[in-house]
Design a protein around this nucleic acid. Structure first.
Lengths: 202, 202
DNA sequence: CCCCCTCCTTACTCTAGAGTAAGGAGGGGG
DNA sequence: CCCCCTCCTTACTCTAGAGTAAGGAGGGGG
């Protein structure tokens, strides 16, 4: 063996590759990332990438898949049936924003990446749609007397969209999770112009 | 001359090229669009593209620039000082969503495209930031007694984010402009769960 | 002890597609 | 009438980077 590379079991190597791929993809985007760059980051030779993942597309898909799963897992606390719907929404908000905060490097850009990739958009949209459905459900449960024609799904779309926009600012370090969660919660229940629920300044 | 191509003045040809480029870029994304494809769509030979625009990047930048300008222009009616801030916001919302509805093919994808291109993200973000500033300003003007610590910019970020998410659904034909504008207006002033302002069903 | 499976590498091939070289024709101005 | 500017084309070149061929070494199981 030429390189200083150690023999490792496939499962371990695969995760290392995925780690490297997520990093480089998120830094440079799908098209501006070469398999050579990923191989270099993972400290492995390129043919290994092809041996384990087959192609660049499949490797990227594997990244999306793993990160998407983690994302969904991060949101499970919000499913706690012991909480009121409103608190569930609060927890969902914090989980979502907390996830972005903790995984800015890996997830947020991947999310934006994959979303605008159209070969992979479908794959991401499914994670995202689950989030929207969850949100719609919580909104519906928390609304005391909904009007007959109310479309909770489109409301959820709006709220999740707002969440994504705010999440970008979190990833950019311009605002912290708590402040963002407060803002979005108030947005949902009272509108932007409404009074804040938690109210301490200075 | 071999092709059936007619001699046209540069200014005219440039616009045709831009039209073609916007179409193809929005259909396939920046990286999945070849200069050959654009040339074919514009019914012109590839060297003309290079003669007038220099490179693929510059051509794309020219697209962003033209569409961005049109986008900003579409929003100017909202600046009418004869309107109340709240009506200005309503007009801005309708202008924005109306623009997306009318230019789904060209703009929305370009917007998403360029935004996630990082070589061009800055260029788009500037149009977008103008939109956010405008929105923040309108929110601030329409709020009767704002709390001292209120961050109108981040509110505007959330609202614009919601608008973009809803705009995607408009582009997808899942909802119409009026309904979306109603939703977003109510979102801004009353929250998702609040009663609709306009209130007719079935 | 040796077989063979898995892990791993160096050193290629091949093509899409960005960008260019070289030259031709219309047509207005002198 | 002819010069020359602008518009336009065919037919290339060149490279980044996806993907592959061929082979080598560790080490557990028989």
């Amino acid at each position: 063996m030429a390189g200083g590379t150690k023999r490792l079991p496939r499962a371990v190597r695969e995760q290392q590759m995925l780690d490297a791929a997520v990093e480089v993809f998120s830094e440079n985007g799908f098209h501006n990332t070469s398999m050579d760059a990923i191989a270099a980051r993972a400290q492995i030779s390129k043919p290994m990438l092809y041996l384990y993942y087959g192609s660049k597309d499949e490797l990227f898909a594997a990244c999306i898949s793993r990160e998407g799963q983690r994302f969904v897992e991060a949101l499970t606390p919000a499913g706690d049936p012991g909480l009121t719907p409103r608190d569930q929404l609060r927890v969902a908000l914090e989980s979502f924003l907390g996830f972005v905060d903790a995984h800015r490097n890996s997830w947020m850009v991947l999310y934006r990446q994959a979303m605008s990739q159209q070969a992979f958009a479908g794959q991401v949209r499914s994670s995202r749609d689950r989030l929207i459905e969850l949100t719609a459900h919580l909104l519906e449960s928390s609304t005391r007397d909904p009007e007959p024609g109310t479309d909770f799904v489109i409301m959820a779309v709006a709220l999740v969209g707002a969440g994504e926009a705010v999440a970008d600012r979190i990833a950019g370090g311009e605002i912290d999770v708590e402040k963002a969660a407060d803002l979005l919660e108030n947005l949902a229940w009272r509108g932007l112009a409404g009074k804040k629920r938690t109210d301490q300044h200075g």
